[in-house]
Amino acid sequence: MIIQVRHVAALCALACAAGAVLTACGAPDAPPAARPAPSASSAAPSRPPTLAPGPAGLARVFEHGPRTRGRTVALTFDADMTADEGPRAEAGERFDNPQLIATLRRLKVPATVFMTGRWAEEYPRQARSIGRDPLFEVANHSYSHYAFTGSCYGLPTLSVDRLRPDVERAYTALRRAGVPNAMPYFRFPGGCYDRQALKALAPTGATAVQWDVVSGDAFATDADAVARQVLDGVRPGSVVVMHCTRSAAPVTERALRTIVPELRAQGFRFVKVSQLIGATSGHR
């Protein structure tokens, strides 16, 4: 609601004349001083932008932002770890990539991290650090990183009745790890989904987030090739999918050191997925 400055000033003048203590007097845009202390729920940030479910009651799928509203691009990083990979982590395999996060911070690049609940359980300090850094936003990548459809890159498949609980379990794991405000965005493991998966996701209120630029960093060994694939594919409003796992994407951080300055030299500005969705009206 927009309040005219003259109206606020008049109210302040009357209150001051009556001897009331109003800190808003002399500052028309400030909120009234006499306001109840906010409850825990009212103090929380406003809900991030989402895409409303479609007419069939299916969760909407977001792939990229507007092409005509400036040269913006969102880098997204999947922090993958499946529910059965605990023994591999215990044996020394690293599913995290703190150097990549450090590089994003050093280069001041906003990013969206799609985190599995199992990853957050394995690396709670890192999950908490990322989730509380205003440079980043954390979104849901399922708890188990099991497929929501059949035949999805060899991933184990969840039964229909486990789809929604898996999403909700991930949010619980993120909260327990210390991520205060996980975003209402969901990335399907492997990017695989169908109508059944979208129907299961809809009641959670989350928007499914895909991408329009594949970095090709998964299991890549050539950082220059990854960088070139991203640079060749990015357009205004693009969402780039990359990975934040050392064992599965060992050259991503090196590629990032090429991608970021080159895109900035081309006039691109890095934003989070929430900003692209907020700039989108009815885009599918």
Rank of each mutant, 00 (worst) to 15 (best):
E122I: 11
A206F: 15
R169F: 14
L163M: 09
Q229F: 00
L51D: 05
K272E: 07
R69G: 10
A249G: 11
E93K: 00
L135D: 04
H243K: 09
K199V: 07
L135A: 11
Q275V: 08
I130T: 00
V209W: 00
S42H: 10
H64G: 06
A220W: 05
E122T: 14
Q229C: 04
E90G: 12
A37M: 10
G57A: 10
Q99H: 13
R125P: 02
A56Y: 04
L135G: 06
F148H: 03
L263N: 06
R88G: 03
Y171T: 04
Y185K: 11
D212W: 01
A56V: 02
P184T: 11
L51M: 09
S247T: 15
H7K: 03
A173N: 02
L163K: 03
R71D: 14
P189E: 07
K199S: 14
S215M: 02
V160Y: 08
K272W: 06
Y143S: 01
A182T: 09
Y171I: 01
E63N: 14
F219T: 00
V209N: 00
G216R: 03
D232K: 15
A89N: 03
L58G: 07
N97Q: 10
Y123P: 07
A208L: 09
S46W: 11
G178C: 09
P53E: 13
T116I: 03
S238L: 07
P36Q: 14
A24E: 13
P236H: 07
A255C: 03
R88E: 12
C152L: 04
R164N: 00
R175K: 14
L158D: 03
A127M: 10
P250H: 13
R106P: 00
L198M: 13
V260W: 02
D224H: 10
L22E: 14
V160N: 10
P53S: 12
Y185E: 15
V241Q: 04
R105V: 06
G233M: 02
N140C: 11
P48Y: 05
S281K: 06
M1R: 11
G267I: 05
F270Y: 13
R175D: 05
V61P: 10
E122A: 15
M242Y: 02
E63H: 12
A182W: 02
T76C: 08
T245N: 05
Y153S: 09
N181D: 15
E93N: 11
V179D: 03
S144H: 08
F148E: 07
R176Q: 15
R254Q: 15
A89V: 15
H283W: 09
